[in-house]
Design a protein around this nucleic acid. Structure first.
Length: 423
DNA sequence: TCTGGGGTCCTAGGACCC
DNA sequence: TCTGGGGTCCTAGGACCC
């Protein structure tokens, strides 16, 4: 029909909430919400949406407007299983699959009967996963994205190039994938409000106003493939970040430091899970008024041990921490990551860098955590953060969860042992 | 959208060199 | 030491995504 190769965009409808319903079919037809651990709505079923519940809404507000709402904590392990099943089903139809995110993928469809293939994929996904998907089929990723958003939930929209103007005319520029608030404002200021108006501008106009990514979007709106599918989904990270907001904000350096320390521990857990080591760290403190105090630290050698990172951080922390300022969050981003399983470089003195012993300690700590729950063992410097009960967690005053120390995040009772050390 | 958390890519401009 | 021209590399920050 219209393309020799079409691109399919598949998007799980209310994915997290749908996974919960698929996991527990008795929830079907009910207003189900995920995000309990954060205290705000993360995902919701269409039944919940119909009651006026919105993403980001505070849970107390949810209970007020919808007392029968079922509010569940996020269960990423389950979502990830459904995600993998989704990819696997799509791969029965084509090898050209890009795993774009936990609830979305792109697929390349060869041949003339794209619509039939898309229909069949959709039916199979729904039958085998017990949830609906919205699908767009067109010549480029940007157009396929417009297609999958066109009818939600449970939609299938094929955008042939000759019909594209009909769809683009009804799409405001800010709804185009890759065009955010800043660029929308810029385009609007030049009188461009719809995707159609944008697509009709000439090459010189677009290049004169916008940077490369937007020139590419403009081409894709016109049916020219610029973004090929990234099928070789060897997932790895260029950076790993952990950040956490706490309430109420604090001006106590020891408490703020413990929050940072906990974030460092969490970032390092993820680092080790992916067999990575960091050469560089970026820390920040977010003030009550949303200003950032930050520092960049280069690590003496690649590491995934929180002590080593913390000992580097502890020198910068007093410099960026300002007395009397209240902070609401801390964060760390680890960058310049290398594969820890690669052979080690010798240093100038032809010795392996220190840190190999500490590695053994962390293998044991990770083993303990997998047996007894996350943070079964943790650094002393994280102690007050581990103890801290965060009201935003959405647990009531009579919370069953008193502290992380005596009750694991799994809910099992246990005794955590703070690991005593230098930091 | 009264602002949570985790990522990636691009570019302007500074530092530095010849 | 008021002063041309050209190139590369790196970093900070902007913008965007889910």
């Amino acid at each position: 029909m219209m393309f020799e190769r079409a691109i399919l965009h598949i998007d799980g409808d209310s994915f997290f909430a749908s996974c919960e319903v698929a996991k527990n079919p008795s929830l079907k037809g009910k207003p189900v919400i995920t995000g309990r651990e954060r205290g705000i709505v993360s995902a919701m079923t269409y039944e919940a949406k119909a009651k006026g519940i919105k993403r980001g809404m505070i849970l107390s507000e949810v209970r007020r407007i919808c007392p029968d709402a079922i509010i569940l904590p996020s269960d990423y392990e389950t979502y990830s299983i459904f995600s993998k099943r989704m990819y696997a089903i799509v791969r029965r139809y084509t090898d050209i699959v890009e795993e774009y995110s936990i609830d979305e993928c792109f697929a390349g469809i060869e041949g003339p009967n794209g619509r039939e293939v898309a229909t069949s994929i959709k039916q199979t996904l729904e039958r085998e996963l017990g949830m609906t998907f919205s699908i767009g089929l067109s010549a480029t990723k940007v157009l396929a994205k417009i297609g999958s958003k066109w009818k939600k939930p449970d939609g299938l929209t094929v955008i042939a190039l000759k019909d594209a103007p009909l769809y683009l005319d009804k799409t405001p520029v800010e709804k185009i994938w890759g065009i955010g608030p800043a660029t929308s404002l810029l385009l609007n200021s030049r009188g461009v409000r719809t995707a159609l108006e944008f697509s009709l501008k000439n090459d010189a106009w677009v290049r004169g106003l916008l940077a490369k990514p937007y020139v590419e979007i403009w081409k894709e709106l016109n049916g020219e493939v610029v973004n090929e599918l990234d099928v070789d989904g060897r997932q790895t990270y260029k950076s790993i970040a952990k950040t956490k907001t706490f309430t109420p904000p604090s001006h106590d350096p020891a408490f703020v430091y413990s929050q940072l320390s906990k974030n460092v521990e969490n970032a390092c857990i993820k680092l080790r899970r992916w067999h990575l080591e960091a050469r560089e760290a970026h820390i920040f403190l977010k003030t009550q008024s949303f200003a950032y105090h930050d520092a960049k630290i280069s690590l003496p050698h690649p590491t995934s041990a929180p002590q080593e990172i913390l000992s580097a951080i502890s020198k910068s922390f007093p410099r960026i921490f300002q007395r009397g300022v209240r902070y609401r969050a801390t964060g760390i981003s680890l960058m310049n990551l290398i594969d820890s399983q690669l052979p080690k470089q010798l240093n100038l003195f032809n010795e392996y860098s220190s840190g190999d012993d500490i590695k053994a300690v962390y293998e044991s700590m990770d083993a303990l955590s997998s047996r007894y729950g996350k943070h079964a063992v943790f650094l002393c410097s994280s102690f007050s953060a581990m103890n801290h009960k965060n009201p935003q967690d959405g647990y009531g005053a009579t919370s069953e969860r008193t502290t992380n120390i005596f009750k694991g995040e799994s809910g099992r009772k246990r005794l955590g042992i703070p690991m005593l050390g230098e930091v």
